[in-house]
Simulated scan of single mutants.
Amino acid sequence: MATTSAAVDDSTQVQPTHDDPDRRGLTPGEHLVDGGYTSALIVLAARAQGIDLIGPLPPASDRRTREAKGFALTDFAIDWDAKSATCPRGEKSRYWGTTHVDGQPRTVVIFPEYGCRNCRVRPACTSGFTRRLTLHPREEHELLQRQRAEQNTDAWKQRYAKRAGVEGTICQAVRATGIRPSRYRGHAKTGLAHVFSDQPPPHGRTPHRAPRRHHPPHPLRRPRPRSQTQQEDTHTPSLNRATESRSAGRQAQLPHGRARRWGGVR
């Protein structure tokens, strides 16, 4: 059980969650998580501790992969030893370098402009004059390609189906204890409430529906005094009724034809 600020990314809590049972010699062999707790770096770190982290990895972020049109990253052949890449048309890259994205190392591959400019399938590859690839480090890249292909198989989906039971248990506990909004101020009190809510009930089963609770108002939250405008708004219904009555009386005194034109009938 870990209580953090709402601004903390969920993926940062995977490593502390694995370190705690590892110190006590209770390292799990398998850990089922959702997509918010997975990345190539996190999966590799878990495997270094002997934990098989199972969860859907996010798809590649390039536009061709998102739109499922044209040549995606998986269509390029990467030769890590020769430090070059080959496009589906057989053109080899002209540049291989390194950079950093959000503090993480990345490999940049650029294809020659003269080859891309005269390519007949360039609209299916890039909207610019040349194609540019941004790759993870080799070990992460190969893991991403392998696991993204594996998670589309029926065997992986059947193995990951157990996660639905975990999500159902979490949902039932949250609804039964009502811990989604914190009732306390401060990290320490909120964390203690989370620990208590994580304990099973005496009868061994969590109720399906949380009982209705009526919490008294907070002593520091005093009701705001009504402004002059709000006090005047209380008389609005009677003023509206009086205005409608006067309008109806004026229409009754007008000739029949003019009243019909005002009503929208010509």
Rank of each mutant, 00 (worst) to 15 (best):
M1A: 13
A7N: 14
Q13R: 11
V14C: 01
H18Y: 07
R23P: 01
R24E: 10
G35R: 09
I42P: 01
A45D: 12
L53S: 10
P56R: 14
S61C: 07
R63L: 10
R63C: 08
R64Q: 14
T65M: 00
E67N: 15
E67T: 14
G70C: 10
L73R: 08
I78M: 09
I78G: 09
D79A: 09
S84F: 02
C87S: 12
K92A: 13
R94D: 14
T98N: 05
T99M: 13
T99R: 05
H100N: 11
V101Q: 07
V101M: 02
R106M: 05
T107P: 07
V109D: 07
E113I: 06
G115R: 15
N118G: 11
R120C: 02
R122G: 13
P123W: 04
A124M: 07
A124I: 00
A124C: 00
A124Q: 15
T130V: 00
T134N: 05
E139K: 06
E140Y: 04
Q145F: 03
R146W: 05
Q147R: 11
A149F: 00
Q151A: 03
N152L: 11
N152Y: 00
A155H: 08
W156S: 04
W156K: 08
R159S: 05
V166E: 01
G168L: 01
I170R: 02
A173V: 10
A173F: 03
G178N: 02
I179Y: 09
I179D: 07
I179S: 02
R180Y: 04
R180L: 06
R180G: 08
R183C: 02
Y184E: 10
R185K: 12
G186K: 02
K189Y: 09
G191C: 00
V195Y: 08
V195P: 01
D198W: 13
Q199T: 05
Q199H: 02
R205I: 10
T206R: 10
P207C: 01
R209N: 01
A210H: 05
R212H: 12
P216R: 15
P219W: 04
L220Y: 03
L220R: 15
R221L: 14
R222E: 11
R222I: 07
P223T: 10
R226I: 13
T229S: 06
E232L: 14
D233H: 11
T234G: 02
P237L: 03
L239K: 15
A242K: 05
G249M: 10
R250K: 03
G257M: 05
G257S: 10
G257E: 12
R258Y: 09
R260N: 02
